[in-house]
Simulated assay, not measured.
Amino acid sequence: MRRQLDLDLAALAVDRHADGWLARGLRVAPLGWRHDANGHLLPGRDPLSDPLGLVVQIAGDTWDAVLVVELSREGWAYPGYYGKAGAVRERRRVRSPGEWDAVLNQAVERASRIRLQQAQLMARTCTTGWLDWIHGELWLTPTCLLRVRSGLMDSVVNSFGSGLPARDQGRTVGYDPDRVLTGHRTNKLIPFPDIARARLRGGITTSSLTVDMRDGTRHKLLWKSSDPARRLLTDRLLPILGARLIR
């Protein structure tokens, strides 16, 4: 039987962090226990006879999302980021007070940088050139294109796949722009207002987008033609670029 966490000790850890959060100008909601299947919270610090978990809410005036961190007595932490565009919820294993401290620190730092947007996955086979063999995901958001590198096994699986569904309703994604760009040299974040001109090409097996930015930099993206990226990019870029979009 797995040993359960001491939620009172976990609450004391939140208290220790709270002074630092408040000094940064953040808002910390009253601590509460989540005590039933509906997730209802009780304000204050009085634990119930059989609490299921601990909840703390943190917000900042410049943040794009409100952070809600839940900790279950079974040792799972759930940092959740909630904004106008929707919510993104994660799961982290917590086995010790040190791991709980790390989850809190990482969640607060991520909340200060995260951007929540409704996005549509256009391709899982996106690369940044003919010599780039590792696939990545290509996302279309209201303000930018986002390319995030995957891995070797994903690339192998995608090579034999049939492509994404033509009609994907999209979902809420949360990303840290700086972390995306520093995560790997082939990751891309391309803001639409910064595009000077672009060229879309379709092929039997591979389609591509070449983008010239206003600052003189250039980006090239390739993907399997079975993915719907070319159609979606045409619909999004044509109203922005007009004649500057070559198809």
Rank of each mutant, 00 (worst) to 15 (best):
L48G: 15
L52N: 12
G136L: 05
R230C: 03
R91N: 07
R230F: 03
P165F: 06
V156C: 02
R91L: 09
P193C: 14
L138E: 02
G202N: 07
L164Y: 06
G44R: 07
L67P: 10
T234H: 08
G161S: 15
S49K: 11
R231L: 10
D178Y: 06
W63H: 12
L152T: 04
V157K: 06
S207L: 04
Q118W: 09
S96G: 05
S208I: 00
V173H: 01
G25K: 08
S150M: 09
G136W: 01
D194S: 09
V69I: 15
R115Q: 15
S49R: 14
D50P: 01
R218V: 14
S225P: 05
R2T: 04
G163M: 07
D154H: 09
W33A: 05
D64H: 14
E137I: 00
L67A: 12
P51F: 03
G183S: 13
L42W: 10
Q120P: 04
G151D: 15
G242W: 11
A198S: 10
G216R: 12
L121K: 08
W21V: 09
Y78M: 12
G44E: 09
W33Y: 13
R149V: 14
L145M: 07
V56Y: 04
T234V: 04
I134G: 00
G183D: 14
L31W: 10
G53R: 01
E90Y: 03
L48H: 08
R115P: 05
V103C: 10
P142C: 03
N187H: 06
Y78G: 07
L9Q: 14
D194A: 11
R45F: 06
T217V: 06
P165V: 10
L5C: 00
L200G: 03
I204S: 03
L245P: 07
